[in-house]
Each structure stands twice: as structure tokens, then as C-alpha cells.
Amino acid sequence: MLNIKNLHVSVEDGDHSREILKGLSFHLKPGEVHAIMGPNGSGKSTLGNVIAGKDGYEVTEGEILFAGEDVLEMEPEERAAAGLFLAFQYPVEVPGVATMTFLKAAMNSQREARGEEKLTTPQFMKLVKDASEMLGVRSEMLKRPINVGFSGGEKKRNEIMQMALLQPKLAVLDETDSGLDIDALRIVSEGVNALRGPNRSFLVITHYQRLLDYIKPDQVHVLAGGRIVRSGGPELATELEERGYAEFLETA
């Protein structure tokens, strides 16, 4: 599903470039959930942004294959239509654009790009109703401009609702747990778990282990200093929680 090989990524930093990811590799198979854990500044968010195609990063070496295709050659919207989804750490406010309007534009753009029929309004309404109920998103919120004045928890639930509607093949969750209280964390995790299936993969980026109590990963990778310094099963997350990242920072 997602195969990252020797990925090197730099950003402009003043008049020179700074390397953030320094040869990162891992392979995520269909139906699997992998967690990327790491301390602040290890390059976790960079990884999510590069997979989704955000500007401002230079891939100097390596490749990202998604379902066998080179995503680095694709525009962000093409990646989305191909089945990639990024749940943002900081969902962006778009004033004046109702959440419903945004959702419909997104769903129909993707369908159009894939050569599918656009949704009729009743079809769309039904899908939105189901997804919003599952995630406890109030209908009043759907009418408000997307993310504008939403609480941290509302923003994250909105992200997962979008994921539920867009039905991606691969979802990258970038620190979805940050800013969530325990109830919101549970709702969001249930939303994610409901979407798990043999043909859908997840890459869960997180600083803390607690999200992984709810979303059980198949594999955990520790990202430090721009490289994966250790990989293992779910027990690795627990170990990290107990011992912290210090030893990895030294080895990185």
C-alpha cells in the first residue's frame, strides 16, 4: 500500500537548506496500521506533509510509492483522488465556506477525478448524516464555516468525519490525539476503528502512547533524528511511554 524507500527531505532555512528526513524507509501493507512515534522535531509532521504533497519540502533522494504509483509526481488533489488522506494536526480555517459545502466539493471533486458520477444532494445528505452521527458532530456545526471557531476536539472530529466520507485507502493521522480530552479521544478512535478493514491502511503519527491504547497498531516505528531508529510490535509503544525518547535521541 505505502512503500517509502530511503526518503531524504530538506526544507529551506534562511539561505541554506536543512535536511529533516535522512533516509527513512518502511513498508505499510493493505489493512495494516503502523504508528510513527517520536520526540518533537524528529520529522513526524514533515513525513505526513510530504506524503500528502505539501509545498515547501524538497525530496532530495528516495521514493514514496502508493499502491505502486510514485506519489511524488502527483499533485495533492491527485493523491487525494487516488485514495490518500491526511488528517491534519492543525486543521485549517476557511472563513465563509460552510463545512457542508466544503465536504461536497471534496467528495465530488474526487469522484469526478476518478470518472465516477457526482453525488446527488440526497445521496450526499445521507452520507453526511451517517458520518456525523457516528462522530458526534452536531448538524449545526456542518452549517458553520469549516473549522472556524471549532474547539480542538471539534476540529479533530471533523477531520475524522471527512475521512469517513472520503473513504481513503490510506489515512495518515498527524497527531490526531493532540488537544483531545479523554472522551473526544475515545470517539475519534472509535471512528477510526470503524473504518479499519482489509483494504484500508493507517499511518498514525503520535507523540504519546495513549492513542495507541485505542487504535492498536500492527507495527510501531520510532522516528528520531530523521530516521527510523527502531521498529517493533505494539509493545514498543508501551516501552517508549515508560522509558521516554532519551536513549533514541542519543543514538540518532
Binding site: A52, G53, K54, D55, E75, P76, E77, R79, A80, A81, F85, L86, F88, P91, V92, E93, V94, F102, A105, A106, M107, S109, Q110, A113, Q162, L166
Partner: peptide
């Protein structure tokens, strides 16, 4: 904002 919309498939 642009990236947010594009990452959802909007050209």
C-alpha cells in the same frame, strides 16, 4: 488553506 482544500481532492 489551499493545501487543506487540495489535500481533500479539490483542484
Amino acid at each position: 488553506q489551499l493545501f487543506y482544500a487540495r489535500s481533500r481532492g479539490i483542484g
